[in-house]
Simulated assay, not measured.
Amino acid sequence: MNDAAAHTPASPPPTPWERGRPARARVSARTPLSRERVVEAALTVLDRQGLDGLSMRQVAAELGVTVSALYAHVRSKDDLLELMYTRLFDGAALPEPDPERWQEQLRDYARTGRERLLSHRDMARISMAYAPFTAELLPHVEAFLGLLRTAGLPDRIAAEAGDLISTYIDGFVLGETMWRERAAEAAGEDAEDASDHPDVNGMAAEMQDYFASLPESDFPHLHALAGLMVTDSADERFGIGVEIILRGLASYLPDAAAGRRVPSEPDHD
């Protein structure tokens, strides 16, 4: 997760919410169960049954062990969810920040972030609701903020942009997966089989036709944008959203923001 060109940073201390987590168990011939195996089993259950169907009992059944055996490796379901999210970043690395290519680097970050969340069912929900910063992910967060600050963005904007981009990725993938699940339910299929189901395109076309049918005199904007507001290309919609964010950030660069105050505190009347 660290920049390959930079020195390897010292491991940060455990975060306050991790201090109660059991230490990693030593793997031996007598200890077949491990934290890694628990996480892998949990991801298998998640993909099969979704977040609402994920339980410690289901994970234990997947491993063929008792529920109590899991607690030697994770302290709670929330702890397990954090570990599942952290697993997504194994092997992930951000490039050396390049102020001349910062927009391209952030496009790549957004694209890989979306792919990461789509790699397992309901991972966007876990990211938004269950995954605070952990010591394992702090180097990744540090490198991401480095891309923003090296670009020349003011510190206040860089700090807000980090949360904005992450929230956009989470929210887009959450909506994207909910759309697929609705299409799957309509077709009587599993959600994981609905990513390319024609009903997804059919639902988009149905909404486009409805907006186009609205009286133009009453709904001039919906009528005019009917063919653009809902499209069947998630890749295209995601990319346009990223571009909107990038253009907004670019307006805060020193040469673009000359003579304009960078917001620091809310204005009061």
Rank of each mutant, 00 (worst) to 15 (best):
residue 52 D to F: 02
residue 254 P to C: 05
residue 114 R to Q: 14
residue 239 G to W: 06
residue 83 L to N: 04
residue 235 D to C: 06
residue 9 P to C: 08
residue 131 A to T: 11
residue 158 A to P: 02
residue 205 A to L: 13
residue 21 R to H: 07
residue 107 R to C: 12
residue 67 V to K: 15
residue 78 D to Q: 13
residue 207 M to R: 13
residue 77 K to I: 01
residue 229 M to Y: 12
residue 4 A to N: 10
residue 129 A to D: 12
residue 169 I to C: 03
residue 97 P to W: 05
residue 188 G to H: 01
residue 12 P to Y: 08
residue 208 Q to K: 13
residue 143 A to M: 04
residue 61 A to Y: 03
residue 69 A to N: 13
residue 244 I to P: 01
residue 124 A to K: 07
residue 197 H to F: 00
residue 109 Y to G: 02
residue 97 P to E: 07
residue 30 R to W: 02
residue 204 A to Y: 00
residue 76 S to M: 06
residue 176 E to W: 06
residue 17 W to P: 00
residue 263 P to I: 03
residue 175 G to H: 10
residue 61 A to V: 10
residue 192 E to I: 09
residue 170 D to G: 01
residue 145 L to I: 10
residue 3 D to F: 08
residue 164 L to Y: 11
residue 68 S to R: 12
residue 136 E to I: 10
residue 90 D to F: 08
residue 120 H to T: 01
residue 212 A to W: 11
residue 73 H to G: 07
residue 226 A to K: 12
residue 227 G to C: 07
residue 77 K to D: 00
residue 139 P to T: 06
residue 2 N to L: 09
residue 45 V to L: 02
residue 49 Q to W: 04
residue 91 G to M: 14
residue 88 L to W: 02
residue 47 D to C: 01
residue 150 T to C: 10
residue 211 F to G: 04
residue 167 T to I: 00
residue 83 L to D: 12
residue 2 N to K: 06
residue 135 A to T: 14
residue 166 S to P: 01
residue 169 I to V: 15
residue 269 D to Y: 13
residue 12 P to H: 08
residue 100 E to A: 15
residue 39 V to S: 05
residue 62 E to C: 08
residue 29 A to Q: 12
